[in-house]
């Protein structure tokens, strides 16, 4: 910004950076355009006839033709695409064919549930994953390392929807430690005002502690299952970042100076991997949104994932395409944030 405002301020280095930034922005623009094109293509591959979906099998030919024109299907493909592009840019994703409401409105309504679940999962996953990854690298080939690596191996080999089912069976049906599917028991559902849509926060704001405890008992299990997959990813990456740092010479220097191993690792090496770990955490947040699709189905969690799967099963193409587009945009944005974080926080990239 400052560079653009002060014209004579463009040193060659700044000019290069400005150009890099512009290229990055342009390539993100192209990616987003491609995203829209891909979802358009997916929407057009549909074997079902969207007109029949609206007017029904036995509609007279006149009604069929009218809806056919209304949907713009008589236009050339490129005109249809431009129309789709325009509606994508203005985030007008059309109406859901099942609920009848605008897709964006539907997504806005279900999204807080997913954000809440993914955030709790990420906090747990990070809280466990980072220390375990560091410990694993710190005591490489010790029993801690082997345990962590085995747990991670199982974590990324296990289907998380199955873990969810087993968790429900053991901790809900068997032991009764947690509440079952859903976000909150029906009794509490209208006992407080839903201001943010995040039930944990809403119940606290309303001071309704019974409802809060109930919401916690509902979220614990799905969040733990999601956190497990996030944890395996985060700790695996942390371990390999840390292992790379520990071969550096400054580590030996610090040790020769008499610093304890623990202090060397946490004070010296960890600072150097902090930015990398941060970007991994951000990326794992994006993957949590993906993992939520199956987990939400298992736990009847009324979030984005369940909205998407029910749209999939109903053949509601507007909703499917809309959800896919939104997820794509979120993914690109998170990647962009990671990139920026990297540039801003890591002095080595300057």
């Amino acid at each position: 910004m400052r560079v653009a405002a002060q014209g004579g301020y463009l040193t060659p280095r700044r000019r290069r950076r400005l150009r890099e930034t512009l290229v990055a922005i342009a390539s993100i623009g192209v990616t987003l355009l491609g995203l829209v094109a891909l979802t358009f293509f997916i929407g057009r591959m549909l074997p079902l006839d969207p007109v029949i979906k609206i007017v029904g099998e036995n509609a007279p030919q006149a009604a069929y033709d009218r809806v056919y024109r209304e949907l713009g299907l008589d236009q050339p493909l490129i005109v249809q695409f431009l129309g789709y592009l325009k509606s994508a840019v203005t985030l007008d994703l059309g109406n859901s064919l099942t609920s009848g409401r605008p897709v964006l409105e539907d997504i806005g309504r279900v999204f807080p549930a997913t954000i809440e679940l993914a955030t709790v999962a990420m906090v747990i996953g990070t809280g466990l994953g980072v220390p375990l990854g560091v410990l694993s690298a710190m005591y490489a080939n010790s029993w801690i390392d082997h345990v962590v690596r085995t747990v991670c191996l199982i974590g990324y080999s296990a289907p998380n929807f199955w873990l969810g089912l087993m968790g429900l069976m053991i901790f809900y049906a068997g032991l009764g430690w947690v509440s079952g599917p859903g976000r909150i028991d029906f009794v509490y559902e209208y006992g407080f005002e839903q201001r943010t849509g995040l039930l944990l926060i809403d119940t606290i704001m309303a001071g309704n502690w019974d409802a809060f405890r109930n919401a916690v008992s509902h979220i614990v299990l799905p969040a733990a299952i999601l956190a497990f997959s996030a944890m395996t990813y985060i700790s695996r990456m942390t371990r390999s970042f840390m292992a790379a740092q520990l071969t550096q010479e400054y580590i030996i220097t610090a040790r020769v100076k008499g610093l304890s191993w623990r202090r060397t690792v946490w004070r010296h090496a960890f600072r150097n991997i902090a930015v990398q770990v941060l970007t991994v955490i951000a990326l794992s947040y994006a993957f949590l949104l993906e993992g939520a699709v199956l987990t939400e189905t298992v736990f009847a969690w009324p979030g984005f994932g369940r909205y998407l799967t029910s749209a999939l099963l109903a053949g509601d193409m507007n909703a499917v395409v809309g959800c896919t587009l939104i997820i794509g945009i979120i993914f690109v944005t998170i990647n962009l944030i990671c990139d920026v974080l990297y540039r801003v926080l890591d002095p080595r990239t300057r």
């Binding site: 891909l38 591959m45 993906e290 193409m317 395409v321 959800c323 997820i327």
Partner: peptide, 24 residues
């Protein structure tokens, strides 16, 4: 590579879900 980027912009499960809905 732009095409690759576009595909990578989606989590693989979401992309597979969208395609399989379209294909049946």
């Amino acid at each position: 590579m732009r095409i690759v980027d576009v595909f990578l912009a989606f989590p693989s499960l979401i992309l597979a879900l969208a395609f399989v809905t379209a294909l049946g």
